[in-house]
């Protein structure tokens, strides 16, 4: 078995002891990870973009463990919505994407999108003149209106 790298966006509940959780990831599941992006607001949910490196089954187990502890884990690819069918291959988005997730195929001049390289900088969202990206790293929960129930 070989180790693989996977990127996940994880949303930690406000009261979670995320330090303890991530410690367990390293210790029990032998997952190496790096934090690519973090948005933590005191008393609110915190979002992290984590790159996990481990054996596939350990990643699986680690994710299950986190989910059991109320952490919402989504593979990065699922967080990025891209309406490929409307893309005109203009290239605007490739100018702002520094990770190489968005590049031009310089033979056919078509857009190449490799979501696994994305770090959710969100620069491509306003850069696309066709408005084809929907990347929302820290989705605000709709404010619950405390009326009635």
């Amino acid at each position: 078995m070989i180790e693989v790298t996977r990127r996940y966006v994880m949303k930690f509940p406000p009261d979670s002891a995320d330090k303890a959780l991530t410690y367990k990831l390293i210790k029990d599941y032998d997952i190496k990870f790096s934090i690519l992006k973090a948005e933590v607001r005191p008393g609110r949910t915190g979002s992290l973009l984590l790159e996990l490196e481990a054996l596939p089954e350990n990643i699986q187990k680690g994710i299950e463990y986190l989910e059991a502890n109320a952490v919402i884990c989504e593979p990065l690819g699922k967080k990025i919505k891209f309406e490929a069918s409307k893309c005109i291959n203009c290239g605007n988005c490739t100018g702002v994407c520094f990770t190489g997730a968005l590049t031009m195929d310089r033979e056919r001049w078509k857009l190449n999108f490799e979501p696994e390289l994305c770090v959710v900088c969100e620069l491509c969202v306003p850069a696309c003149p066709m408005n084809l990206f929907d990347i929302n790293f820290h989705e605000e929960e709709p404010e619950k209106i405390a009326v009635g129930n």
């Binding site: 291959n89 203009c90 290239g91 605007n92 490739t94 100018g95």
Partner: peptide, 11 residues
């Protein structure tokens, strides 16, 4: 400096 097109050569 990296370059990017803003018009579609494919089209």
């Amino acid at each position: 400096v990296r370059t990017a097109p803003v018009a579609s050569l494919q089209k």
